[in-house]
């Protein structure tokens, strides 16, 4: 897989995945991402998977896991641009995506993060 690039936008990290990912590159992605969250104290995280060829069960589990880890670091995660066929496969495999937000596109993803932040402020 090509080098990962993490974009920062208004305190959120945006990362786009593309092509094919091996199990090791998925693990690599997870650890680098979490380090980046720690480094910049990210408030939100957006993972754009619209250019991914496929998502297997391992990758899906890692995404959910990463979202939970990020949650522990007070960072909300949004999965953006999942293709219908991928969604159907993952659901039919019986995977649970609890704790992960989903959005149709990047705009919506940012919107969800804004809303979550507003909700948190309101609670305080």
């Amino acid at each position: 897989m090509a080098e990962l690039s993490f974009l920062t936008f208004r305190g959120n990290i945006i990362v786009a995945l593309h092509g094919e990912m091996t199990d090791s590159s998925v693990r690599n992605f997870q650890s680098h991402l979490l380090e980046e969250i720690e480094r910049i104290h990210a408030r939100g995280l957006i993972i754009d998977i619209s250019a991914l060829e496929f998502v297997d069960s391992y990758m899906a589990r890692v995404f959910v896991e990463t979202a939970k880890m990020a949650q522990l670091m007070d960072t909300r995660t949004v999965l953006v641009g999942m293709k219908p066929e991928i969604a159907i496969t993952l659901i039919q495999m019986g995977l649970s995506f609890e704790g992960v937000f989903s959005a149709v596109n990047l705009d919506r993803g940012l919107e969800i993060l804004e809303k979550e932040r507003a909700r948190k402020r309101g609670r305080r």
């Binding site: 999965l79 969604a87 159907i88 659901i91 995506f97 149709v104 919506r108 993803g109």
Partner: peptide, 12 residues
């Protein structure tokens, strides 16, 4: 039930 889950996954 699966359809509703998948709807959530694609972001609606």
């Amino acid at each position: 039930a699966q359809t509703m889950e998948a709807v959530k996954l694609v972001g609606a």
